[in-house]
Design a protein around this nucleic acid. Structure first.
Lengths: 123, 123
DNA sequence: TTTCATAGTTACTTTTTAGTACCTACTTTA
DNA sequence: TAAAGTAGGTACTAAAAAGTAACTATGAAA
């Protein structure tokens, strides 16, 4: 992608680019609502996600320091993921965003009826 | 993209998918800081963006009712874009997100120095 | 002894997205 | 008469992202 000239290092742009990846808000939602989880748990709780996709998303979130990765040096290894302090702060803001997003969708449904959606809200 | 099973209609996911498109936050930033603008103005003020990309982003934002499109039926037409009430509400939340994103990046720079970035902050 | 579970990685293919260049129709300006 | 500005649209190509399947090593259970 050709970057906007001012995009280099723009923190908001970088952050949005991390959290808008596929499945990402579902992962954050899961960790926010039910606390830390292991790789296999996350995978089983998100039917349809591939190992590759889950790994990619977790690595991005970890690199952005939104989640932490804790590995116990056992065989086989136990790896646990959870929200960092920054992750908690982020999910609070996403909760606000979710609130307005829901409200807007409800307002739009007032005029044209749609099938009620299943949501993955953070809060 | 294979959708997460609960993604159908999730308002937060839809909203994020709109605002994380390339150039999108720069467009929102521009409209938030300097008010409504015409197509050509926006294009000139974002050097490097193509007409196609700008049109795509504006159409997405318009469809999501984050911006409005006002066309004067002159020849050639004058088309003005601006934030809707929802757009204003959104940029307020993005402002918060920008604040924490900036703070996190500053904290990370305390340990490893990087070139100071040019930003496109909303607020 | 074969299978399951752990937490992924790798190679390859398909799909989606973005970039480039050219086109519209009409008016004003040089 | 020719060029520039208006707000895009269209076709084609290139690049990035996502999907799929197979594979790693180890230990425990059937």
């Amino acid at each position: 992608m050709k970057l906007p000239p001012s995009a280099f290092g723009c923190p908001l742009d970088s952050l949005l680019r991390v959290i808008c990846g596929p499945w990402t808000i579902y992962i954050l939602c899961r960790l926010h609502k039910h606390g830390p989880a292991r790789f296999g748990q996350l995978k089983r709780q998100m039917p349809g996600i591939s190992s590759k996709m889950l790994t990619e998303r977790l690595r991005m979130l970890e690199k952005a320091e939104i989640i932490y990765r804790h590995q116990e040096p056992t065989v086989p290894p136990r790896v646990t993921y959870g929200l960092t302090a920054e992750g908690q702060e982020l999910t609070k803001i996403l909760d606000q965003l979710n609130t307005v997003a829901q409200r807007w969708q409800d307002e739009q449904r007032e005029s044209s009826y749609e099938i009620p959606p299943v949501t993955a809200q953070i809060g």
